[in-house]
Write a protein that binds this DNA or RNA. Sequence first.
DNA 1: TGCAAAACTGTTATGTTATAACAGGATTGT
DNA 2: ACAATCCTGTTATAACATAACAGTTTTGCA
Lengths: 165, 165
Amino acid sequence: MPTPQVASCAFSDEHNHQRCIRTALATAERLCADRRCRLTPVRKRVLELVWQSHTPLGAYQILAQLGDEGFNSAPPTVYRALEFLQEQGLVHRIASLNAFTGCCAPDRQHHGYFLICRQCGRAHELEGQPLSQALREQAARQGFMVEAETVELTGLCPHCREPLA
Amino acid sequence: MPTPQVASCAFSDEHNHQRCIRTALATAERLCADRRCRLTPVRKRVLELVWQSHTPLGAYQILAQLGDEGFNSAPPTVYRALEFLQEQGLVHRIASLNAFTGCCAPDRQHHGYFLICRQCGRAHELEGQPLSQALREQAARQGFMVEAETVELTGLCPHCREPLA
DNA sequence: TGCAAAACTGTTATGTTATAACAGGATTGT
DNA sequence: ACAATCCTGTTATAACATAACAGTTTTGCA
Ligand SMILES: [Zn+2]
Ligand SMILES: [Zn+2]
Ligand SMILES: [Zn+2]
Ligand SMILES: [Zn+2]
């Protein structure tokens, strides 16, 4: 039986996001078990907070929420949790926002490509194997060996365009 | 007669980089004159410093150099200059490095795509009309209107790969 | 079970990047 | 000359991120 997939839901109107969150956490639990790494309470809670937000969260926003809940709330706590979650492919860092968002396909090998709405702040993840191909060809022509990709497109999402049309 | 083009020279070994800098500054002067905007001394000097560096410069690195030269050296000085230069398309900000680099084709309409070497720190600008096309198609399928693109590929440049081969 | 190594967390301090807000000066067009 | 605009100086602070070291928990193995 295939893994339940969490779709990138940033621009989808009607859906039960609680379910997205539960699925994401369940997938994370399973992946960490498979990989023999530990999804500790702080790490799990950080992942949950990231998923609960409808826009990418800054480290200090996460930190503030952790503090309200009695967790330790010094910066290293949250940066360490985020580092772990990134290593496991459970969250992506969005460089142009200095913020973090849940990965919509943590059990698949991919790069995170994002459409980021400047109006509502939501970030939609594209799973971009085709893009990857085109980018790598350009790079190869220069003799460059690509190891990591940052692809972030900023603009207006379908909802935020609508009023203007 | 066409505009003299400044090539992206980050990964090219043998060239007279002083000439690159002079050309970049001359092009900037001309563009600003055409556009009736002012390439003031600080702005010009910031652009020159950015071009002089073989790797993208952080704002505070620029600031330090300005300070040594008797310019005012509080952060807003350099951030304002950089903002102007970005608006005029004379420099690009590299989000994944929090750093700035001179644009290699300021008189052409384009997005800055970068190959960034994690070893030597150099950043090579690709003028990526073809990429742009592929990216926009993906976005269009989602109903997303792209306004700005951040495309930064990190890895090893031709020179830094060589010793490993 | 007992122990050592490894992994994780707590804590303090500091480094780095970026902007807000307001005052003053230079430039431009009329 | 004057007003509007643009540019710069200055102080303060916000936002983002890591270093370094101490202590605890977990894990694997004798
Ligand atoms: Zn992802
Ligand atoms: Zn939107
Ligand atoms: Zn450019
Ligand atoms: Zn290199």
